[in-house]
């Protein structure tokens, strides 16, 4: 379009205000996928808050009532999701595991993301020695075997609450995100609008907060939502080694790791917790994507 005429036409013609319904909320409200994610995540939140009520739906309210004689039974009317190796009800276990798994997944990701944002932005925006220091530090963490590190830290910490396990997992997941933040901040730092902001004499804090971060946060948010799932699984590895949550703790990760060797004979033990995990991760990722698109004015 010839812009000379376009500008004149546009200025006089119909567009005198913004098109209606373009705010963040108006756009979100119209997306069914957004509502699907909200419903799934709310349900999971409720399950985590009051597991006993949900567990009681099918007549097996207590996950710790196990009958060794009915070990690894396929789903039936009595046990809708079947039973696991110890003869415990899988449904009740999945329901009761939600709290631990979700809190470990969310807490650890949130901590890692927060650290990554601060450290990555510092490295990417400041550059120089801060960048070199932080980059080498992330290299050390990435090069260090996760299990070895976790063993050392967890044995020296002593306490085994979901919080301490989350912290250990966060300790080993921030470097990847920090590198991502660093590289996207670096690319945004060179953008002309950041130069323009600096030429305007804005303070560094304002430039970082209003110009750099909003434009650089997209990739790391996507990775963070995916990392919720991998953290839940990583927790299971630790627990499996006797380092994570202590038995009789219940978590999806624990169920998955104990079920994986019996997959061929009793697949239901693996399938049902996996479905919960997958649905959680999918809902998180989708919500993350939708939010990212909506927060970007170009995507609205």
């Amino acid at each position: 379009m010839s812009e000379a005429t376009a500008s004149v036409e546009d200025a006089t013609a119909e567009h005198t205000g913004p098109p209606p319904g373009r705010g963040v909320w108006q756009t979100l409200r119209r997306r069914p996928l957004f509502w699907a994610c909200v419903v799934v995540l709310t349900l999971l939140g409720l399950v985590a808050a009051v597991p006993s009520w949900f567990a009681g739906w099918f007549g097996q309210p207590d996950p710790r009532v196990c009958d060794l004689s009915s070990s690894a039974q396929a789903p039936s009317a009595e046990h809708v999701f079947g039973t696991d190796l110890q003869g415990c009800d899988v449904w009740a276990n999945v329901i009761f595991g939600t709290r631990n798994s979700l809190s470990v997944g969310l807490l650890s990701t949130a901590v890692a993301l927060a650290v990554a944002l601060v450290v990555g932005t510092l490295a990417g925006y400041r550059g120089g020695w801060a960048d070199r220091l932080i980059s080498r530090l992330t290299d050390v963490f990435l090069g260090f075997p996760f299990l070895l590190g976790a063993v050392v830290v967890l044995t020296s910490v002593g306490s085994r609450s979901p919080v301490s396990v989350s912290m250990v997992l966060a300790l080993f997941s921030w470097p990847t995100m920090a590198r991502l933040v660093r590289s996207s901040v670096r690319s945004v730092r060179g953008a002309e609008y950041v130069d323009a902001a600096r030429a305007m004499g804005l303070s560094t804090a304002r430039i970082v907060r209003r110009y750099v971060l909003p434009n650089a946060i997209g990739p790391v948010l996507a990775v963070a939502t995916i990392s919720v799932g991998s953290v839940i699984v990583a927790e299971s590895t630790l627990t499996f080694l006797g380092l994570g949550l202590r038995a009789p703790s219940i978590s999806w990760g624990l169920q998955l790791s104990s079920a994986q060797s019996y997959f061929q004979t009793a697949p239901h033990m693996l399938v049902f917790p996996s479905i919960f995990l997958t649905v959680t991760v999918l809902a998180m990722i989708t919500l993350g994507d939708i939010l990212r698109d909506t927060l970007d004015p170009r995507g609205r």
């Binding site: 953008a191 002309e192 609008y193 130069d195 323009a196 902001a197 030429a199 305007m200 004499g201 303070s203 209003r210 110009y211 909003p214 434009n215 927060l295 970007d296 004015p297 170009r298």
Partner: peptide, 22 residues
């Protein structure tokens, strides 16, 4: 330096890149 910049305006080459897209 910041005070001095208040008295200087700037227009860059690429108007698409010189404004915060958010």
């Amino acid at each position: 330096a910041r005070a001095a910049r208040q008295r200087v305006g700037v227009v860059f080459q690429n108007p698409a890149a010189s404004m915060n897209p958010r």
